[in-house]
Structures are given as structure tokens and as C-alpha cells.
Design a protein around this nucleic acid. Structure first.
Lengths: 139, 139
DNA sequence: CCGAGACGGTTCGTGGTACAAACTAATTAG
DNA sequence: CTAATTAGTTTGTACCACGAACCGTCTCGG
């Protein structure tokens, strides 16, 4: 296989990014998964199940995740009248605040990581990454 | 910040790679962290503490990690005569087999993800990723 | 040389994460 | 109107991670 270098580079890069994410989350006493959840809830008010689908988690895992976030006031459960089985998950102001702050710190961290790259290279990297991402979604 | 796109692209790409890693690990009933450990042990026979440093884990976490891997016959504890406090962690043949297989599957997965990129672009992506990685190590 | 402290690992207690299986309440299908 | 399905919760198990307390083993200063 010629592309061992690519494999290594992408693996290491992913750890770099994930570690940054985890470190920033930890700064606010959040886990990676909680941060991801808040990120989703910034733009959506999904059902438990939809949330689970977004995060790739079992419904029982979602129950616990939402429980803990709710206990900390980051999230609320909203019952629905139409179908009384389903409950929506909604982010609170406090959760939104945390999410925004984490996102900002993360952006800053990535900016620092890529500061040595000239703007053209940054654009190229963005474009290539996006090509890989869209390629992964089509099949 | 102009580079929101870069931030998003790198974050998503990292999840793509990590999910692939986790999925492949899970196929062999391994966790991501166990896979990382085996990957390290392929080329090293470190002390508990060194292993912890490589993985960024507390020594108490390493004890448990090695316990579980040892129970499954992937790893052994090797006492040292020179300093009877330290114990080395050594990969077993079975562990090596699993690590090799996982690495192969991962490489294949990445190859599939990047199959749509022409070779030149793959090389560019590798080079850019490596620039970011080395940049992160120097400070 | 020997006792105080440093060091490497383990153990224990706590809490987050994840799943599967069993369960409840509500809805929908036949 | 009953039977099957669906959304979510609960329970039990296992992993992961940490800090604090602990046990042997070294090492160093006096």
C-alpha cells in the first residue's frame, strides 16, 4: 500500500483535533459527547431518538446523557402534546452559553494549529477535507 | 473569524476518522484506547508509566487497561530485575495479530474514503496534514 | 549504613459512557 | 377493540478515567 503516509497523517490529525476538543470540553467540565450534544442542540430541538441517531447512540444511552445534562441545567425535556410518548430535548440558555464558548475556544485552537499555514494552503486543506467528508456521505 | 470552514472541516474529518477507528476496533471487541495501546506495543515494550505518558493517561488508568488486556491474552506484564518496582508491558502474539489486522482494516477504510481524490490531491492532503501535525509538536 | 523521602504500581471509590434486555405508557393497525 | 408497534425509561454489566490512599522498592543524605 503506497498510502501508508496518508493513513498515518489522517489518524494523527484526528487525534490532534479530538484531543483539543476533549481538552476544551474538560475545561468546562464537559465530556466530548456532551459537547457534541450541545452543538447539535444549538440548531435543533430533536426527539430523544433523533438525538440518538445524530450521535450514533442507543436510546438508553441518550436517556442517561440527557439526565446528566439536565441535572446540570444545560438541557430540558419538553413533552409534546401531539404524541405524548415523544419528548423533545431543548438546550437552555446556560447550555447555549457553554456551547458557544466551547466553540469559540475550539476555533481559536484550530486557528493556532494552522497558523503556520499560508492562507492558500488553509483553503486547500479545507477543500480537500470537505471532499473526503462528502465522499463519505454519498455511499 | 474567516476560517470557520476550516474548523468545521477538520472537526468533521476527525470524527470521520475516529468513528472508523472505533468501528473497526469494535469489530474485534476492542475499544479505541485498547487499539491505541496495542499499536504502541507493536514497536515498544514500555514501563506502565511510559505507556501512560504515551496515551496521556493516569497510572491508575493504565493498571486497569493492562489488567483487561492481559485477561484477554493480548498483553503480558514483564517484571524487571534491575528495578523491581517497574514492570514492562509486552504484546503477545495474539495481541500483535489483532493489532496488525486492525491496522490493515483501518488503512483500507482510509483508502476507500480517499479513493475519490486523485493521487496528487492525496499527496497534498498528506503533506498539509503533516505540516499541521509537526506545527503542533514544536511549541 | 540506615532512615526519610521519592518513586512505580495497585487498589478503592466515584462518576461518565455504552449497550442489551425487560418494562411502561401511548399510538396505530387490523 | 385487541394486537402489534413505538418512544422512552430502568436495570444490570462492563469499560474508561481520575484522585487518594496504600505498599514495596529504591536512593540519598547524614
Amino acid at each position: 500500500m503506497i498510502d501508508d503516509d496518508l493513513v498515518d497523517a489522517l489518524a494523527q490529525l484526528s487525534f490532534l483535533v479530538q484531543n483539543a476538543l476533549a481538552e476544551i470540553a474538560g475545561r468546562h467540565d464537559l465530556s466530548l459527547i456532551q459537547t457534541r450534544m450541545l452543538g447539535i442542540l444549538r440548531d435543533h430541538e430533536p426527539t430523544m431518538q433523533d438525538l440518538g441517531r445524530h450521535l450514533g447512540l442507543d436510546k438508553s444511552s441518550i436517556s442517561g446523557l440527557v439526565d446528566r445534562a439536565q441535572r446540570r441545567g444545560l438541557v430540558t425535556r419538553v413533552p409534546t402534546a401531539a404524541d405524548r410518548r415523544v419528548t423533545l430535548v431543548s438546550i437552555t440558555d446556560e447550555g447555549r452559553r457553554l456551547a458557544a464558548q466551547g466553540a469559540a475556544e475550539f476555533a481559536e485552537h484550530i486557528a493556532a494549529l494552522t497558523a503556520t499555514l499560508p492562507p492558500d494552503d488553509r483553503r486547500t486543506l479545507t477543500a480537500l477535507a470537505n471532499r473526503v467528508i462528502t465522499a463519505s456521505r454519498i455511499p
